[in-house]
Amino acid sequence: MMRDITLGQYYPVQSPVHKLDPRTKLFGTLVLIVALFVADNVYCYGAAALFLFGIIAASKVPVGHIVKGLKPVLFLLVFSAAFNLFLTPGEELVHFWIFTITKEGLVRAGMMAVRLTFLVMGTSLLTFTTTPNQLTDGLERSLRFLNVVHVPVHEIAMIMSIALRFIPILVEETDKIMKAQMARGADFETGGLIKKAKAMIPLLVPLFISAFRRASDLALAMEARCYHGGEGRTKMKPLKYRTADRLAYLILLAFPTGVVLLRVLL
């Protein structure tokens, strides 16, 4: 069940996008998000589509795989589209019972759906092409300026990468404890909400205990290997911009400029 979630799982293939510096990709994602919110006409969306699908093609991640990642946010997508569809005032197209669909509503719903879809596809593309470690490294470097205002950037990045490392282990553990309790007659499926919530106790208590045990073991293991925070630490794989990154930055700057121009001119 939990293994079906594709959102955020690294997709291991060799591609120019995979090889980019994580900071470049983070910046690209940011650019896409901003551009999508600035965009307000069909041409802008056309440009965004060109940009996004261009990167997807270069990343060698199958489109089908990315679309599958949309499943968990499908509800949100439909909900916000419907919201816009029925609640935008304007020129009436169809009317039945209490619902009115307007021309403006139709356009806005369509745009909203496209905007959200592109947003999710763009951000999941980031995680498909970047390992969790690269991602945290990139974040750590990009946000380093926050150290000035005493944000423990290194520690937060370390917590993130450890969390990512332990997710598969805890998923497996959940499955095992669930089965063990089912073998003792526990029932996780039937009954009302309260009964179901109560049935989770035999699963959650052991899971928490195990998570705490792992955390304290891990802390000990890190200490034993001389971990003492980010101070004086060197990197095995320091981040370095290469020619491809410089090129990517040019494209990344050209794209939002284009979107803004399209918005202003058309």
Partner: peptide, 20 residues
């Protein structure tokens, strides 16, 4: 299946991890 599980008892590896 519930009946089956009470007739065929299964003790998993490291069963102490299921105590709660």
């Amino acid at each position: 299946m519930k009946e089956l599980r009470s007739r065929v008892g299964l003790v998993f590896q490291y069963p102490e991890h299921q105590l709660f």
